[in-house]
Design a binder for these strands. Structure first.
Length: 112
DNA sequence: AGCATGACGATCG
DNA sequence: GCGATCGCCATGC
């Protein structure tokens, strides 16, 4: 393992940046992958601060596949637009076939 | 330094 | 099955 709790936000940013195009993940999965367990809120808060970094926060949704953070984007439609542009279909603020597009960050937990 | 909140999640009731 | 509450870590006041 490398830097975990020293730069928690930085780790979150890196992890989110590693999300492949057309894939999405959840706050809780990221939190768990980083060892936060149920600290999903921290991930969400990190996303709020991630606007200063080139972090594809639109690929991160809640565990229901719902675009809960779309309101925090420059425009409420930016999130679904970006997702659709990457091949992820979004309907009613929710990702269609979410589990199909789901990407488990734990797959890279040893690569970070 | 302590209280309140937040783009969530899980469990208890 | 749905509603309410606690937990998690960090930031803001």
């Amino acid at each position: 393992m490398k830097s975990n709790k020293e730069n928690l936000y930085a780790t979150i940013y890196e992890l989110v940046r590693l999300i492949p195009e057309g894939r999405v993940t959840t706050y809780g999965s990221i939190a768990k992958a980083l060892g936060l367990g149920s600290g999903a809120r921290v991930v969400g808060f990190a996303m709020n601060a991630s606007h200063t970094e080139n972090v594809p926060a639109h690929r991160v949704v809640n565990r229901n596949g719902q675009l809960t953070g779309k309101h925090h984007f420059p425009t409420p439609t930016a999130m679904e637009t970006l997702l659709k542009a990457e091949g992820v279909n979004v309907e009613n603020d929710q990702i269609v076939d979410f589990e199909k597009h789901f990407w488990d960050p734990a797959s890279l937990e040893g690569e970070i």
